[in-house]
């Protein structure tokens, strides 16, 4: 864990949402250890510990297949936030992505990935570099997209649901950790 991060819990959340290939699975113990030291509430820790336990106890390829089915092949749970902005938002998607990338650059960070800047783990990792309030503001700004993804995970009863719910709640603390998030109509 990079001790220079202002909000390391977001780094952990980002890592949890990455593709669970063999490399990911070998890092899982490190992730579980970090849960205690990364600024999660005890309730959050319990939830995330359950998720990690599920990952650890699931066959590797099954876990990968579930990830692909959930996030790669299901548009409704796509982890690219700007894909959830509806038809009107979609018209500005390219410019929005460019704006986000510029925002990261302005903050002094260069992207080293071929991922898009709106990929949730990318956004979470950026949040980890911010102070708590700024990080929460960032996620609050993505509230609509996060709610849409969470609602979909709810609908398919996904094991990833607690992670998304937790992230959504960071930006909208009035939403309870355990209650389903309403889909914006």
């Amino acid at each position: 864990m990079n001790t220079a991060l202002c909000s390391p819990s977001y780094r952990v959340l980002a890592a949890l949402l990455e593709y669970p290939d063999a490399a990911f699975r070998s890092r899982l113990p490190e992730l579980r250890a970090a849960l205690a030291a990364s600024g999660f509430t005890s309730k959050e820790r319990i939830v995330l510990e359950e998720v990690c336990a599920w990952m650890a106890n699931t066959d590797g390829l099954d876990l990968e297949a579930l990830y692909v089915r959930t996030f790669d092949l299901d548009a409704k749970a796509d982890l690219h936030l700007t894909s959830h902005l509806g038809v009107d938002g979609d018209r500005n998607r390219g410019p929005d992505l460019i704006r986000l990338a510029t925002h990261f650059e302005d903050a002094g960070w260069a992207l080293t990935t071929r991922e898009l800047p709106d990929y949730l783990p990318v956004v979470l990792e950026f949040a980890a570099t911010l102070g708590d309030e700024a990080a929460r503001d960032l996620l609050a700004g993505a509230g609509e997209a996060l709610a849409a993804i969470t609602a979909r995970l709810e609908g398919i009863d996904s094991p990833y649901l607690p992670v998304l719910r937790l992230i959504t709640r960071r930006g909208a603390p009035d939403i309870p950790l355990a209650r389903p998030v309403e889909t914006p109509s």
Binding site: L61, D62, E64, A65, V68, D72, D74, A75, K76, D78, H80, T82, S83, R93, G94, L97, L116
Partner: peptide
Amino acid sequence: YSPHRIKHPMVRG
């Protein structure tokens, strides 16, 4: 950048 984009090589598990 759509959700339908094939982003990685994939194989039937």
